[in-house]
Write a protein that binds this DNA or RNA. Structure first.
Lengths: 154, 154
DNA sequence: TAATTAATCAGAAACAATTACTGATTTAAT
DNA sequence: ATTAAATCAGTAATTGTTTCTGATTAATTA
């Protein structure tokens, strides 16, 4: 399967917002009976439209009080260097997001840690240990105004 | 409730990765019987450690092929101006993330759209219509190397 | 246009999970 | 040591999921 009809789209929009909805709830919301709804949800998962179901936890409540954005520039852009960097950075559990950017910098990282001390030791002992890093620029996040996993589908 | 014990932490680490695990699966994984596991999961939700359960959908498969980071600087930082901006930007469905930053720029946005054309009309018709914007700088994302909702709890 | 095929749906029945409850055990505090 | 509180395992009732069948609709071809 490859293309979504309007019912699929409504299902995805619902489950992106709240996947604790049961098949029954979804079927009621979209005006279809349980079994075809069940089949559609399964198909959406099987075909990779739904990657996974996850619980979103409150960052502050688990003690990750500091969010930092860090831009990274590498000394060289050889395939070898890029691969090493990407593999290493992906395995760092503090790093939530790694984006490869067009423009000035090579990468942007989003990092969640307990506090400034933790961030300092993260940069010192782990991030700056990766070879071929030419420049790091860290910006502290003062406030997380929006952080949404759901993308509205039209 | 306010503090997590080691069992709660293991539950959160599991459900952050995969919330399609049933109570039975979780209880088996942590070596507890079903009922206390059930109670703990409910408590974690009730007390706000778990904010919500969501389905993560594949961005490319739903046609959001372009991811853009956009830094925003405002002309002034009066409370009024900030509030207007934050409220307006939060309601834009294309905007997944809004961070208020310390440093050069005031805000960083993460925006998902279909293509460059869509981004252009988004900036023209919606983003730049917000009052008191002094500067916008857009960086296209070449590659999303990592994008993780789970934060490992220790 | 009519016949045929494929797809999608509703409903029911079997199955499995969740939820609530009870009593027992452990832990903490006096 | 005794009491009180918290946490646990097990069970039973409820509710939800999953599978299956037949019917209806939509699409395709002659």
């Amino acid at each position: 399967m490859d293309r979504l009809d309007s019912i699929d789209i409504r299902i995805l929009n619902l489950l992106q917002k709240d996947s604790s909805l049961g098949v029954k709830d979804v079927s009621a919301a979209i005006g279809l009976s349980v079994s075809p709804t069940y089949e559609r949800i399964n198909r959406l998962k099987r075909d990779g439209f739904i990657e996974k179901y996850v619980a979103i936890v409150n960052r502050e409540k688990i003690g990750k009080h500091l969010l930092v954005l860090c831009t990274v520039t590498l000394k060289q852009q050889s395939m070898e260097t890029l691969v090493i960097f990407e593999q290493t950075i992906t395995n760092f559990k503090e790093v939530l997001e790694v984006l490869c950017l067009a423009g000035n910098h090579d990468y942007l990282l989003k990092i969640a840690v307990k506090d400034v001390n933790d961030y300092h030791s993260f940069v010192l002992n782990r991030l700056s240990q990766i070879p071929n890093i030419s420049n790091l620029q860290s910006s502290f996040v003062l406030k997380e105004i929006k952080n949404e996993t759901a993308m509205e589908i039209v």
